[in-house]
Design a protein around this nucleic acid. Structure first.
Lengths: 363, 363
DNA sequence: TTGAAAGCGTTACCAA
DNA sequence: TTGGTAACGCTTTCAA
């Protein structure tokens, strides 16, 4: 145990029953309906009455019970959102963009994280559904059969984000992770690299990582290049530590590797710093690229080439989608697909090749 | 707009009213009470009856309405948590540790972020209180008067974390940010540095940052050293970008600065990389330290000296505290104070000084 | 082991 | 502008 636990007496605290609307109504000399209206900025209450009620509520320390309000009004006012990890700047940005938009619509976010596990996602979604969210946003397009069924049958608008599922449940705000990875492979090849490796995590859990790897393999194959330099380094989310370890593995197994694409900027940074510790020059001895346009890719020395997928914008578009669907009375039967265009950011770790390269056709 | 918006028809979707317990009861030929029991693993239901009910529920696609359950049982089953920013590895770790513990107690987390703004915190707490959380965890010990009053009068256990408030509301799991900063100042001085600067954000918003700066100033003063090299660089959360900018400001205003303490590892990394871009050697030309023991401080080259405050453990202890308080019938009137001991991690950016220093008494 | 009835605290609906 | 009444869907409580 890290801390020191210290308890001191603080007795005499009472726990009286919290006042209800009935108490406020009595105190203000009106009906509960009038209290309810006054508290909701409903205009059909005279200023005098409202003032009286607000004073009474304040005096009693009244706090509305939204559980009862929800049950009665059948409006929960929130959107359920699942992300793989709470500790990930990309998903955090998406949530931020989403809440920006939802705030205006007076919708709150109920956030849960799946730890990159579809079983956990199923559990989470099941819990969320009990709270009757007005919409559900899930990261990724891969779910358990049961989870999928739960979502489809929920009668609640569903938005899948950060992916372009082959068979979407309903609405989608995302991009093809495979195509995004191809952007980077093409960039590598254009710069003259031929012996290229991929560093990722366990592909069964990180489905977006899997897609990126698939795109990587396909793009290399399309160029007639060897696409077998693949390292799977631990459970997602793989971060700097795994990136560093994986670099060692790459160099051991394929010493002539010229460039490495990493499943995210964090592992790319880990690989980069491991190179520096080993005295390898980046990009002169080996090129490195990441994914996600995290802050670190911009600030690292050398700065890291990456793919920007507009994480914040995904959130904003998702918010717009949710609001639009909710306003359309949901009977319209329209499926919204907002496709993000991933953007290559070329930086120092993939600088033009200045040295001799055996296969440098375009360098 | 980044993406391409595409809508396609998907009509024919119906929205039938969701089945209730009454429907399940009818389908299974039992009373709603029996359904309720069967769904809660209540033992007082025969296996045959339960099987019948589960089948019926499955067939109807029934999902429990927890809003109604909460209203009836007066148990919401969740803990409200506010953190300054969703995109911060330290707070994310705390939330992770917290949810680890709360999961066992079948408590869920309702998470909100204040954007380092006490007004926003007040708004958030007010919303949360309406949902009748069983406990409230707030980051930091500085609140608006009204927010404080709301918390005190809520009748709900309150835990303040990541701080050691002079006048705590109730329970506390935290540490003195000022004392933690002093650890680093002492470390600098021990290593022979005398001209030391501090990089932080706007101190009115980031109260923990303010405390760290206060500790920095007091520690320098205690050693009879100049403590006026303070840079406030933008609104929190300040990150790599602000750290880099602030480094420039430090060097411009006090060119003879020998060491810099940063309010977090992220700004420290920004300062470090800015040094590298300027051709300054760290720590030979200038030493740098961060705060928070983020991954990056370990992996950066050179690795960054920092303060580890056991973010995950704060979460775990907070969870333990919540559970303990809830189990003690809350009438016991005991205040729990779990004090974390911040730990200095000395790394390469504050390596022993090898060169001449004008005031190197201990070097 | 099962069931009937009475809420839980609010808002929808209709009436005044 | 205000109020009475009936839900909302579940669990508590007590009884069988």
């Amino acid at each position: 145990m890290v801390g020191r636990l210290n308890t001191s007496d603080n007795s005499g605290k009472k726990k009286p029953k919290a006042p209800t609307m009935v108490d406020v109504a009595r105190e203000a000399g009106v009906s509960t309906m009038t209290v309810s209206r006054a508290l909701r900025d409903d205009t059909s209450v005279s200023d005098a009455t409202r003032a009286k009620i607000l004073t009474a509520a304040e005096r009693l320390g009244y706090v509305l019970d939204s559980t009862a309000a929800v049950l009665s009004s059948r409006r929960t006012g929130f959107v359920a959102v699942t992300i793989p990890s709470i500790n990930n700047a990309n998903f955090a940005e998406t949530v931020r963009g989403l809440s920006e938009r939802l705030r205006d619509a007076r919708l709150e976010i109920l956030l849960g994280y799946t730890d990159y596990d579809v079983q956990e996602e199923e559990r989470l979604i099941e819990q969320f559904l009990r709270r009757r969210p007005e919409a559900i946003v899930v990261t990724g397009g891969v779910h358990t059969d049961r989870c999928r069924r739960l979502l489809v049958n929920s009668g609640v608008p569903v938005v899948e984000v950060w992916d372009l599922p082959a068979k979407p449940i309903e609405h989608v705000v995302g991009f093809s992770n495979a195509d995004a990875a191809k952007l980077m492979v093409d960039h590598f090849i254009e710069r003259g690299y031929r012996h290229i490796a991929f560093i990722g995590g366990d592909t069964r859990r990180d489905t977006r990582g899997y897609e990126r790897r698939r795109g990587f393999v396909e793009a290399l194959a399309a160029h007639g290049l060897d696409a077998r330099r693949l390292v799977a380094s631990g459970l997602p989310p793989i971060s700097m530590h795994e990136g560093a370890a994986a670099l060692g593995e790459v160099l051991t197994r394929w010493p002539d590797t010229e460039a490495i694409m990493c499943v995210s900027d964090l592992s790319a940074f880990g690989a980069l710093t491991e190179c520096q510790r080993r005295g390898l020059r980046v990009p002169d001895d080996i090129a490195i690229a990441g994914f996600g346009a995290y802050d670190i890719s911009e600030h690292a020395v050398p700065s890291i080439s990456t793919i920007d997928v507009s994480a914040r914008e995904i959130g904003r578009l998702t918010g717009d989608t949710v609001i639009r669907v909710l306003n359309s009375n949901s009977e319209s039967g329209v499926r919204i697909v907002a496709q993000i265009e991933p953007r290559l950011i070329s930086r120092e770790t993939t600088a033009p090749v200045r040295r001799h390269r055996r296969a440098g056709t375009t360098a």
